[in-house]
Design a protein around this nucleic acid. Structure first.
Lengths: 183, 183
DNA sequence: ATGCGACCTATCTAGCAGATATGTTCGCCC
DNA sequence: GGGCGAACATATCTGCTAGATAGGTCGCAT
């Protein structure tokens, strides 16, 4: 039961906040879990169908258009809690930037600089973005939202990672300068 | 041509160091690229077959057993250099730890502590492991190995990431303690 | 001599991302 | 009021990918 269930957690989790359509689930995941999770329609719709067949979610006739809206059932909420407790499948690494830099000797310092600068810029952008979200979530914490504290925790993880990436990129640009200058 | 080619880079890159069998390619990737890359046999063997058909790698009758050993051809080396220059596909996020903590309100602080401690322990272990590799690679740098400087760069990235994860975990454990104590 | 562990080559299943196709509904400008 | 574009919504297909599984060879130690 360990394989799969990752998408299920995300979908059930999204619906645990409020009822919504498949489209809205995708939006919610991209916006609020965006910096550490993603789902595609190709996953969401089959998953919703399966979850409905199992009685974990149910249609809830609402929404702007003809689109069907789903809500979490009591059984679905129990299942979500159970899934959250399951062991965490190891995160697959796969960092394209590092793969290229590892063979950087074939490219030379100049080309590598470009790659590292791209990485630094993305980290800086991400850090700024997370900072903007932080003030929103902090406001929710101050307003007494119990779950907001946990959202702050995941936000903090993103910030730590982005700052680490930034620091590494600056350090690496200096190293590449030295490599370019010396030999 | 952007999709795929990620596995090709890793396989061609491994063979650029020295000729080896498919099994050894997997070993090499797991050992030296392990902290930011992975490949499975299910990917490696079909890829090797395709690369051979394209003339990018060629059998080089050697190796301990009946197993065929592959070497990089001149054409393959050119292809690798070209692939390294291609734009980097965005890294898929998917962090199972953060997915669970985001919905941590459903689990409670105690359960979350366990998840975060696991994350902290993995980071500490990783940091120690990377430190051991660092002394080896540093020795290669001192011995005048030109490519070793780039290996040091990717190593440093792993260390930055692991330290960030460690710092976040410590910070988060304190936050969870506070959540547990107050309400 | 056999049994263990390493080396080595596959193949299959299901998860998954991204692209694509198709249609609906809304707000708004002209 | 009619058309246009943006957001909304559902669905499917392709190919990459991880992990499991299964089979086979070889050297060596007990």
């Amino acid at each position: 039961m360990s394989r799969q269930s990752q998408t299920e957690i995300a979908v059930l989790g999204a619906l645990s906040v409020e009822p919504m359509s498949g489209y809205a689930v995708r939006q919610a995941i991209a916006q609020t879990l965006g910096h550490f999770w993603s789902e595609s329609f190709g996953q969401i719709y089959p998953t919703l169908g399966r979850l409905e067949a199992e009685g974990l979610v149910a249609p809830s006739g609402e929404g702007r258009t003809s689109g069907s809206t789903y809500r979490l059932t009591a059984k679905g909420r129990r299942r979500l809690r159970a899934l959250l407790q399951e062991p965490i499948p190891s995160a697959p690494p796969r960092n394209g930037t590092l793969l290229r830099l590892f063979f950087g000797g074939l490219l030379g310092p100049a080309e590598c600089r470009g790659i590292v600068q791209g990485s630094r810029d993305r980290a800086a952008k991400s850090l700024a973005h997370l900072g903007r979200i932080r003030v929103e979530v902090q406001a929710e914490v101050d307003a007494g939202d119990a779950g907001a504290a946990y959202r702050l925790i995941t936000l903090s993880a993103g910030e730590h990672t982005a700052r680490a990436q930034l620091a590494w990129a600056e350090e690496t640009l200096a190293v590449l300068d030295a490599l370019d200058a010396l030999p």
